[in-house]
Lab assay of single mutants.
Amino acid sequence: HMTFVALYDYVASGETDLSFKKGERLQIVNNTEGDWWLAHSLTTGRTGYIPSNYVAPSD
Score class of each variant (00 low, 15 high):
A6C: 05
I50R: 00
E33G: 14
F20P: 00
G23Q: 02
Y10H: 06
D9E: 07
D17T: 09
A39S: 02
Y8T: 07
S52M: 09
H40P: 00
S19L: 06
G45F: 07
W36T: 07
H1R: 03
K21R: 10
S41R: 01
S58F: 14
A12T: 04
E33V: 11
G14M: 11
I50T: 01
P51R: 05
E15I: 10
Q27M: 13
T3P: 06
D17W: 08
W37D: 01
A6L: 04
S41E: 02
D17V: 08
T47H: 08
G23E: 03
S58L: 15
K21N: 12
G23A: 03
N31F: 11
Q27E: 14
G45V: 01
F4A: 07
P57F: 09
W36M: 12
L7M: 09
Y10L: 03
Y49W: 15
V5E: 06
W36V: 07
N30G: 14
V5H: 05
T3L: 15
S19K: 03
K22S: 08
G34M: 10
R25K: 14
L42V: 08
T3Y: 15
G34R: 14
S19F: 05
S41A: 04
G48L: 02
L26R: 00
P51M: 06
D35R: 09
Y49M: 12
L26K: 00
A56F: 10
D9N: 07
Q27H: 13
E33K: 11
R46M: 15
W37L: 07
E15N: 11
E24Y: 01
A39P: 00
L38R: 04
P51V: 01
G45Y: 06
T44W: 02
A6K: 00
A56P: 04
Y54G: 06
N31C: 08
K21C: 09
H1T: 12
V11R: 07
S13N: 13
N53G: 13
T43L: 12
N53T: 12
T16G: 14
P57K: 09
I50A: 02
A12I: 03
E33L: 13
E33T: 15
L38K: 05
G14C: 09
R25Y: 14
Q27K: 11
D35L: 12
Y54T: 05
S41G: 01
Q27G: 05
R46F: 10
G34A: 14
R46E: 11
G14P: 03
S52W: 09
R25N: 09
I28Q: 03
L26E: 00
N30A: 11
V5N: 04
M2P: 12
A39Y: 01
T32Q: 13
V55P: 02
W37M: 06
I28L: 07
T43S: 14
S41Y: 00
A39H: 00
A39R: 00
D59G: 13
Y8D: 06
N30E: 10
L7F: 03
I50C: 02
I50Y: 00
E24H: 04
E15T: 14
V11I: 14
S41M: 02
D59W: 13
D9W: 01
S13G: 09
V11F: 11
L26Y: 01
L42Y: 09
S19T: 09
G45E: 05
L38N: 02
D35F: 14
T16F: 15
I28S: 05
D35W: 10
T32K: 12
W37F: 06
G23I: 00
F4S: 03
T44S: 14
D59H: 11
F4I: 05
D17H: 15
L42A: 06
F4R: 03
K21V: 14
S13Y: 11
L42K: 05
T3E: 14
D17G: 14
W37Y: 06
L18R: 01
G48C: 01
Y54L: 15
T16Y: 14
H40Q: 12
H40V: 15
A12H: 05
E15D: 13
G23K: 01
V55E: 02
D59L: 13
S19E: 06
T43W: 09
E15F: 10
V55Q: 02
E15H: 11
T47L: 08
Y49P: 01
P57L: 14
N31Y: 13
T3M: 14
D17Q: 15
S52K: 12
G45R: 05
F4T: 04
T47P: 01
L38V: 07
T3G: 06
L26I: 08
D9S: 07
K21A: 11
F20N: 00
A56T: 15
V29G: 05
L38G: 01
D17K: 12
G14S: 15
G45Q: 06
D17R: 12
D59A: 10
A39I: 04
N30T: 12
Y8E: 08
R25F: 15
N30F: 08
D17C: 07
A6G: 06
H40M: 14
F20I: 11
S52V: 08
F20W: 01
G23M: 03
A56Q: 11
L38E: 05
V11S: 10
N53Q: 10
I50G: 00
P51G: 02
F4M: 13
L18C: 03
Y10P: 00
G14T: 12
H40D: 03
V11W: 12
I28C: 04
T16V: 08
K22R: 11
L42Q: 07
T16P: 05
T43G: 06
T32E: 14
T16C: 09
V29D: 06
Y54R: 06
S58Y: 15
N30H: 11
T32V: 10
I50S: 00
N53V: 09
V11H: 11
T16S: 14
A56S: 10
D9T: 07
A12E: 04
T44F: 02
W36Q: 06
Y10V: 02
H1K: 06
A12C: 04
D35I: 11
P57N: 08
M2A: 10
V29H: 13
V55K: 02
D17P: 03
T43H: 10
A6D: 00
L38I: 07
A56D: 06
N31R: 13
L38H: 04
T3A: 08
E15V: 09
K22G: 04
T3S: 09
F4G: 03
G48A: 04
T47K: 09
S13L: 12
D17M: 14
R25I: 14
T32S: 13
Y54Q: 05
H40W: 10
E24F: 01
I50K: 00
